[in-house]
Design a protein around this nucleic acid. Structure first.
Lengths: 122, 122
DNA sequence: CGGTATCCGAGTTGATACTG
DNA sequence: CAGTATCAACTCGGATACCG
């Protein structure tokens, strides 16, 4: 099936999948989902794992992923509270594909020579 | 190989691949690369295909992808000028993976129930 | 045609402080 | 611990004008 035949056309401005793609494929969405591939994690574990994310962005990202049915949030109302995040079945399928993308990009880095220069310029 | 063993760790704040991931996985990066999977395209063809992108963002995205060695830009100095964009080998491998991600997300949409609500709220 | 340059408002991001 | 609230900075994205 070539991409021209898709019924739900991502190329269309109003495609339903666009908001989902924006969350999933965004910088923190990718890294959060990839981190959860390693298993269930608590909020601050994720925060340490996903280096550089702010509390606000992690919270926002996780809530969006939960609304989309990709991440499951489990609360234990103890003191101190314990909140655990894990992937749903759908989430795990998507996270696996994201991990493949990450692995591919990293393996292709030698062919992405200018990347370091762009990074340095920041 | 589990993701914990990666030498170039995407989870690290200063990982070289992050700027590349940001471009590739960004909204317009994904759609531009996916569009180019269909073959070589001219600027305005891409602009029409990637519905909703402005000239500025498309230009910016294509230049970033070119710098990263994922997209090839070919100029024919005729009048009117003809500029064609195509994928490099590295670009094609990554674009193929992106297309798999798009297809997967679209096929999983039934399990992403809240997505439409989020879209409507915009 | 295929852009670049500039402006500007709106939205996003992140550091910090604070809460239950 | 697990966030929310707030605010300042920054970026995005569109509109417009112009160039080769």
């Amino acid at each position: 099936m070539s991409y021209e035949e898709l019924v739900f056309d991502v190329f269309a401005r109003n495609c339903t999948s666009r908001p989902v793609m924006d969350t999933v494929a965004g910088r923190w969405g990718i890294l959060s989902m990839a981190a959860l591939l390693g298993g269930t994690h608590r909020f601050n574990e994720l925060r340490r794992r996903v280096d550089g994310v702010s509390e606000k962005m992690l919270s926002q990202t996780l809530h969006a992923l939960e609304r989309d049915g990709l991440v499951l949030r489990t609360v234990q109302s103890t003191i101190p509270p314990r909140v655990e995040y894990s992937l749903t079945d759908t989430g795990r399928r998507i996270a696996t594909k994201l991990m493949e993308l990450i692995d591919l990009v990293e393996s292709e880095m030698p062919g992405i020579s200018a990347a370091q220069a762009r990074y340095d310029a920041l």
